[in-house]
């Protein structure tokens, strides 16, 4: 024994889990959707995603190094890469590079590093970036290329399913909904939209992968998707102007949001009970904003609003303590 013995308090073993494993696990879960977006949007998708990832990682490194003056930067933990992918997924494939870079700066700089970096941010950074761009550059952010338009800037654009749904509600004309792609096309992703909004089925596969690998639990995605399906189902039955549940579930950023954005560790509640409240509220808000709000898409706003409520949910939702049932019975 050459060195001094090490003394520490138990436990002396560790599961081997790490931030990197979780973050890269989420990235891996996003790969099928990423490949699909490259297939549907070609060069544009590649440019947007690459710019977004590189600038997110760069800003994380630069802010940690030059502004916060940290000795160790956290770019290798995968969280900036993940933010980059998610931010890219939230953009149309014909977005100019400079807008993407501004989005990344806001996402990482304002959304994350201002609060102290990983683990401290109250709002999902990628969504902060996206909503900032949506409000600042509404025109660029809402002209989506149609699926299969693989050019970058001069891609052919068209109306997205969400825009059609909104138009149907505003005009009260059910026939508008006939232009919606078929359910199969919606599932596979043959329709216009942001990069990550197209292929619902691949996003679901990614989500399942994360649940199986125990990166996330089922509570948030299931409660969001369930609430949206239920509410839009009721609305559709009451008035066919409102689109059918499957189209609603597969359109826009709902799948991406429910599986990857709302489940973000840092900004979602800790306890299953709280996660379900959070999920149901996001689902309900999404349906409300989509159908009666000014914007066609409500997912990002719904998630950001509920992010703000997360600390409150954490305060009031406590896990069931061991022996609690008996304690209550004893009181009676």
């Amino acid at each position: 024994m050459s060195n001094r013995l090490i003394v520490s308090l138990s436990p002396h073993v560790h599961s081997g889990d790490s931030i990197q494993k979780n973050m890269y696990g989420v990235c891996l879960a996003l790969v099928p959707a990423l490949v699909a977006s490259l297939y549907f949007f070609g060069l544009g998708a590649a440019v947007v995603l690459l710019t977004s990832i590189v600038s997110c990682v760069f800003f994380e490194w630069a802010i940690a190094k030059f502004i916060l003056r940290r000795e160790r930067t956290t770019i290798m933990d995968g969280s900036a890469i993940l933010t980059g992918i998610l931010l890219g997924f939230n953009m149309p494939s014909n977005l100019p590079v400079w807008i993407i870079i501004i989005g990344a700066l806001v996402a990482i700089g304002v959304g994350k590093m201002t609060f102290g970096g990983l683990g401290q941010n109250p709002f999902n950074p990628a969504l902060v970036g996206r909503v900032f761009l949506l409000i600042s550059f509404p025109a660029q952010m809402t002209t989506w290329p149609v699926s299969g338009s693989v050019e970058y800037l001069d891609a052919q654009t068209g109306a997205t399913p969400l825009a059609l749904m909104k138009w149907a509600i505003q005009s009260g004309d059910v026939s508008v909904l006939k232009d919606l792609p078929s359910s199969v096309d919606m599932l596979v992703g043959v329709h216009g939209g942001s990069l990550g909004e197209v292929s619902a089925i691949l996003l679901l596969i990614g989500c399942l992968f994360m649940i199986v690998r125990k990166i996330i639990t089922w509570h948030i995605p299931v409660s969001i998707l369930g609430t949206v399906a239920l509410l839009s189902g009721i609305l559709h039955m009451a008035n066919p102007v409102y689109a059918d549940p499957i189209s609603v579930l597969c359109s826009g950023g709902l799948m991406l949001g429910a599986c990857f954005m709302a489940t973000d560790y840092v900004t979602s509640p800790m306890v299953p009970k709280g996660q379900i409240i959070y999920g149901v509220a996001i689902g309900a808000l999404t349906v409300v904003i989509r159908n009666w709000g000014a914007y066609p898409e409500g997912m990002s706003f719904a998630i950001l609003i509920m992010n703000a409520f997360t600390p409150l949910i954490n305060t009031y939702c406590k896990p069931r303590r061991f022996g609690e049932v008996i304690r209550k019975e004893a009181k009676k």
Binding site: N3, R4, L5, I6, V7, S8, L9
Partner: peptide, 22 residues
Amino acid sequence: PHGVEFDGVHSCKIQNMTGMGE
């Protein structure tokens, strides 16, 4: 001399819980 090495939170109270300390 510090005969052993304490590996944990840098807090006297916590190191003290190991018993002798370093």
